[in-house]
């Protein structure tokens, strides 16, 4: 697969504070790449360096295998931190200005406004927009020149649940068109729902990188309930059981490697027990993330 972004030893110091420390990272074409990390872990600083607004202390990176220039940035749509527009200009005028800066066709403006559902409000001043509309305008502006790479930094920050769902759908829609997306977020759920790959940053250090679907692998957890009194003992009697915990009115069974939910189900059935509740839980990214962060200490 073609490498879109390659980062080698990228470092940024703010005085004595090391915001990003010798970061190495590769993003391939078509990936939806999530950058995770607590607040202040260096996500925005990294993206700022990639987009030419923060001068790196050392290290290098390349877009599409080329040394970065401002011409290359025109091929990338990016929203860092929060939406930035001229408050006294209308949404339409702001996008026209963006088209001038990116030297792209202004005829695309109605399309992107349509996509983010801002067509009705396009002639209102930006300062009158709600936060969700501002976020959506920012995404519209990032999509204006039909970029091959999209960088979104906390795109759902401060949005209501509906707004979050809208943005998530939008990201999926864009990703379905084969665009590479780099998504920085501290909302793990969000990353798990839309990303294919992810990296975890902590205090400027990269502590994990890999595909999202690997996260669910490894030990399986099964929630069980049945109308039997000694269920706890029965479950402990299963050869695949590692631990049993009572949680939220269910028994949560952590299985040993190579055992699955269906094995437990068959075991219970053989014991003459019919489960009234049996759910296989994959490990969530949140748990995984917390583990990674704990390991990284």
């Amino acid at each position: 697969m073609e490498t879109v972004l390659s980062i080698k030893g990228l470092t940024k110091n703010f005085g004595r504070l090391c915001a990003v420390n010798k970061l190495n990272l590769e993003v391939k074409r078509g990936q939806v790449f999530g950058m995770l990390g607590p607040n202040g872990s260096g996500k925005t600083t990294t993206l700022g360096m990639l987009m030419g607004v923060t001068n790196p202390t050392s290290g290098e990176f390349s877009w599409f295998g080329e040394t970065p220039t401002h011409h290359l940035r025109k091929k990338i749509g990016a929203v860092l931190e929060h939406p930035i527009f001229y408050p006294y200009l209308s949404g339409q005028k702001n996008l026209e200005l963006n088209a001038l800066v990116k030297q792209c066709d202004a005829r695309n403006i109605p399309n992107v406004l349509d996509l983010v559902e801002l067509t009705d409000r396009r002639n209102d001043k930006y300062k009158t927009y709600s936060l969700g509309m501002k976020q959506r305008l920012a995404i519209a502006s990032a999509l204006l020149n039909d970029p091959t790479v999209l960088i979104l930094d906390e795109p759902t920050n401060g949005l209501d649940p509906m707004g979050i769902a809208e943005i998530r759908e939008l990201i999926k829609k864009i990703a379905a068109n084969g665009k590479t997306i780099i998504l920085a977020s501290h909302l793990l759920d969000e990353v798990q729902k839309v990303c294919t790959h992810f990296a975890v940053l902590k205090r400027g250090n990269l502590i994990h990188t890999g595909p999202v679907n690997e996260v669910g692998q490894g030990e399986e957890r099964v929630e069980v309930n049945a109308e039997v009194e000694n269920l706890n003992e029965v479950l402990r009697g299963f050869s695949g059981t590692a631990t049993v915990q009572r949680e939220n009115g269910f028994y949560e069974v952590t299985l040993r490697e190579n055992f699955h939910g269906k094995d437990l189900n068959r075991f219970l059935f053989d014991q003459g027990i019919t489960a009234s509740h049996l759910v296989t839980r994959k490990k969530s990214l949140e748990k995984h993330f917390l583990e990674i962060l704990a390991d990284g200490k």
Partner: peptide
């Protein structure tokens, strides 16, 4: 104040431009 200089550069102007 509006931080638009930042966005202009992100959008593809060089600092000199």
């Amino acid at each position: 104040t509006y931080r638009t200089v930042r966005q202009n550069i992100i959008d593809g102007l060089s600092r000199w431009e």
